[in-house]
Amino acid sequence: MSQAVLAAPALGVRHRRILPHTTLLALGLLTPSLLLLAAFTYWPVMGVTLRSLTQQRFGQKPSWGIDNFVRLFADPHFSTAAWNTLLYALGTIVPSLALALLLALALREQGRLTTLLRTIIVMPLLIPLVAVAALFIFIFLPGGGLIDYYLAALGMAQTNWLGDPDLALGAIIAITIWKNTGYYMLFFLAGLAGIPEEYHEAAKIDGAGIATRFWRITLPLLGPTIGFVAVIALVNTLVQIDHVIVMTGGGPSDSTNMILYYIYQQAEQNMDSGLASAATVICVGALLALSIISLRALEQGIHYES
């Protein structure tokens, strides 16, 4: 800590002297990334934004306007998809983060058993989502699938997990939790390892119980990690929809339709690139806002530490 305090003014002096050089150097170091980002992120995003403001319907000349956004907000499929995405995000992020944190707490000690258990929890991360989807079609098979086979042993009737509009989203959520919890647990393990043991020892001496230590020490110090993982999880829930494409196609009755799948449908099935672009703009805007908020929290956490 004192190191940083001492280094800062010294650095400031040096910077003032060779500022243009530093800026040039920074530019040089950033150029490879910036060129790639320009080609594959900024250019497409600008294209999408322009297209979202271009009104072009079948056989008509294009013109400027917000017609696409008007149509988007009037489309009941879009509101269903947005609502489903919200349910899906809440339904996956909250349980998988909570579970990941609990598992990280339980399994942070090194040992043969904990290593084995950690490995098992992380394994789903390592198989492709398309393959997961194929496996889970079987697992959810009504009557003969893995779940119903064992539930039947407990005397329960067969359930149409993916074919019932009230259950399908829950089934998709379960798959995502299974797939991603281990990934988030790894970040929490790393975060927990970064909390000095002395804090806990000191609190113990002061007579703090396990719950108090969790709420007063562990959770606040993990704040930035939680912020970071929340962003990753948020992005994952929005873009990882291979299993929706393979397993339900957004159905039954639109009950598992998500924003990205809606975009895909508008662009590729309905050939309505205006509507697809408008939905993309809304989606990216919302994500950006949420991510910046979470990352700000993270940045602050890091500043407090140093």
Binding site: L37, A39, V48, T280, L287, S291
Partner: peptide
Amino acid sequence: FTLFLLQLLLPPAVLVVPNLVM
């Protein structure tokens, strides 16, 4: 830096057609 983070939210799956053109 914020501009960089934008990419985190936009994997090619979201921008298939423009990326293909590119």
